[in-house]
Design a protein around this nucleic acid. Structure first.
Lengths: 153, 153
DNA sequence: CCAAATATCACCCGAAAGTAGGACGCGCCG
DNA sequence: CGGCGCGTCCTACTTTCGGGTGATATTTGG
């Protein structure tokens, strides 16, 4: 909310600035290029500022951890609890769910087929339908979504 | 060097644009505000672009000594703690690390390229080297490994 | 300043993933 | 019985990935 106000004000200021420039132009104190250049420069700067402001995720905070051996990073809650409701809700069949799990393990379609003793084509069919139901386009997204929905660990 | 030429050309084009706008202004087809607004918008966009382009990837590495409570490096709510040692150990460059993060978000190479303002080819190069360093073959595996190593949330 | 590390881009190519459509059998249930 | 969901498989096609190679830029550390 505060943001909006700030931007409103900024916008107002800029418009005012434009007016001033326009006015000067009217008096023809200097050639128009000057004013055009001015506006250009100002708005370029503004653009740089805003661009940086909006997309700032560009700082990576590297946290240097003090000890804490890496081994002990145990899956916290112990066992993974499958959310049966979500599963039903999304309408995923057992087979599709199984394949989602294998995708999440980083297996290729072919490997999944070998693991399940079915053809790669079959795996593709299942995964297609899976993506459809999860409303995703790529397998990484499927894994993300599946995790998010509590379908996989 | 090529860059300079490109920028020179861009500058020329912009000046020409200014000229055109100025000319139209001369004919008074529309009020000056229109042209001012035009210039403003164009240069704002330019600014945004350049801002992003130039400051990208300037990863500010803040080394932040933190004591992690106990074994439970929780993935939940709390923010993610990057393991600087692992990162160095694996020998991943900042750019590669950045791309790993985007892969983990389920973006395609093309989307990553668009997000980072580089070509898809570049993304492919980075991800290739990334896979090499992580000793994996597929992106899902890279995500898995990255998570396991504490490189990504 | 130079050298090394990074980052960028371009091709090409094969493999993997994903799309679209159809087909068949099986079991379940109204 | 007939429809329906499920699992299986297929063909054919497009897109995306990933590997490999080579070439510049740019940055950075010494």
């Amino acid at each position: 909310m505060k943001r909006l106000i700030v931007y409103g004000l900024a916008g107002g200021a800029l418009l005012a600035l434009l007016k001033v420039i326009e006015y000067k132009h009217f008096v023809h104190a200097y050639p128009t290029e000057i004013y055009g250049g001015l506006v250009a420069a100002i708005f370029s700067a503004l653009g740089v500022y805003l661009g940086l402001r909006w997309t700032r995720a560009r700082e990576v905070v590297v946290i240097h951890e003090v000890r804490v051996p890496h081994e002990v990073r145990v899956p916290v809650g112990g066992q993974f609890a499958l959310d049966a409701e979500k599963l039903k809700q999304v309408g995923i069949t057992p087979r599709e769910h199984e394949i989602l799990g294998l995708i999440a393990e980083g297996l290729s379609n072919r490997e999944i087929g070998e693991r399940l003793f079915v053809s790669e084509n079959t795996v593709k069919t299942h995964s297609s339908r899976l993506f459809e139901k999860l409303v995703v386009k790529r397998r990484v997204q499927a894994v993300l979504k599946g995790r998010e929905l509590g379908l996989i660990p």
